[in-house]
């Protein structure tokens, strides 16, 4: 779409017109250099959307097979019953070999196709940096301008567990009873502590009770070893037992999500900005390492620059690409 239409489309996005939201998502996925200006224009136009400031970005992560898609579907339904509109970004991995992907999350979701208050977009991780999808951050911004709650469901492997912290206001880690590895990672401080822990597939009461108790223990140990986390010190990570297939525990999960959203209220915008700055730097470091950072003037300088330019309408992706070009140019000069 030409530039002149972008303001109009941004308005349509903000009124949650599905066709416009879809077009906007297509645009932010567009990697062509000639599209860059339009992406920046769109995101700038959406920046002050009324929904965005009051909205809630929820990240759902956890190992494969714990039922994240089904939980997303049930959570979305629970939010819709409370008259909140919901946008979902479901991320699946791309094949290393072909670059293609099978985006299967919709197959586990059931939703009403005539509901204008629910929008689901599947994204492939595609691209040189693992973890979240290329356009995840921008997609969340688009959906955040249109819907009250945005749920980002990640692949649950590798880098995505860390990236999600930069995109979500609330990070929910989903596990199932008997997830020994997760307990070990938490205890050892290898895994960041999420804002909310969900034990899904808690159909069998005894197993679920034991899993919740184990997790409590692990969290205590994690705190003792000083493990870092998404949350700040005043928030105590709650543990919620759910059964996505039976729909139990969803009310409590929503209550905890609301509580956490309220907890971060005052610091929300700063938290989102911090996340974007951090993601920009992480993207760049993953590509070019510490050498890249020092070549462009060091971490502190880059961080300050990211804060400034992200305010000026750059996205983490576009800025990272700009920094890459500068780094490559600098390498050319020294060679």
């Amino acid at each position: 779409m030409p530039l002149s239409d972008i303001a109009e489309d941004a308005q349509q996005v903000m009124s949650a017109n599905k066709a416009a939201v879809s077009r906007a998502l297509n645009l932010v996925e567009d990697r062509r250099a000639e599209s860059h200006a339009r992406v920046a224009e769109l995101l700038a136009a959406l920046k002050d959307a009324p929904k965005a400031a009051g909205g809630h970005r929820v990240g759902l992560t956890g190992p494969p097979g714990v039922g994240k898609s089904t939980l997303t579907s049930v959570l979305a339904r629970g939010l819709r019953l409370r008259d909140r509109t919901v946008g979902v970004v479901a991320v699946d991995p791309s094949s290393m070999r072909s670059g293609g992907s099978l985006l299967g999350d919709r197959a586990r979701m059931s939703f009403d196709p005539t509901d204008n208050g629910l929008f689901v977009r599947s994204l492939a991780t595609a691209g040189e940096v693992g973890g979240l999808a290329y356009a995840a951050n921008s997609s969340v911004r688009v959906l955040g301008a249109a819907y009250d709650t945005v749920i980002i469901e990640t692949t649950g492997v590798g880098q995505s567990e860390i990236d999600i912290v930069h995109v979500a206001d609330t990070v929910v880690l989903v596990i199932q009873p008997g997830s020994g590895d997760v307990l070990q990672f938490l205890k050892a401080g290898i895994m960041e502590i999420p804002d909310i822990l969900v034990v899904n597939k808690a159909d069998q009461d005894e197993l679920a009770r034991r899993a919740v108790a184990d997790l409590r223990g692990a969290l205590r140990t994690a705190h003792a070893v000083g493990a870092g986390g998404a949350q700040d010190g005043a928030w105590e990570t709650p543990i919620v037992a759910t059964s996505a297939t039976k729909g139990s525990g969803i009310d409590e999960l929503i209550a905890q999500l609301d509580a956490h959203r309220k907890h971060v209220e005052t610091a929300l915008l700063a938290r989102r900005r911090r996340g974007e700055v951090q993601w920009t730097l992480d993207l760049f470091i993953r590509k070019h390492g510490e050498h890249g950072v020092s070549t462009l003037g060091g971490r502190r300088l880059l961080k300050a620059r990211a804060e400034r330019e992200l305010d000026g309408g750059e996205t983490p992706l576009s800025l990272c690409e700009q920094l890459s070009r500068e780094y490559v140019a600098a390498l050319g000069q020294t060679a």
Binding site: S101, L103, V120, R121
Partner: peptide, 21 residues
């Protein structure tokens, strides 16, 4: 990139998915 929805989807659902995806 392939979106696969599984079995038993209504024409309405297919169109909604095509639009959203």
């Amino acid at each position: 990139d392939v979106v696969y929805e599984g079995i038993r989807v209504s024409p309405e659902q297919i169109v909604a998915s095509a639009l959203e995806e």
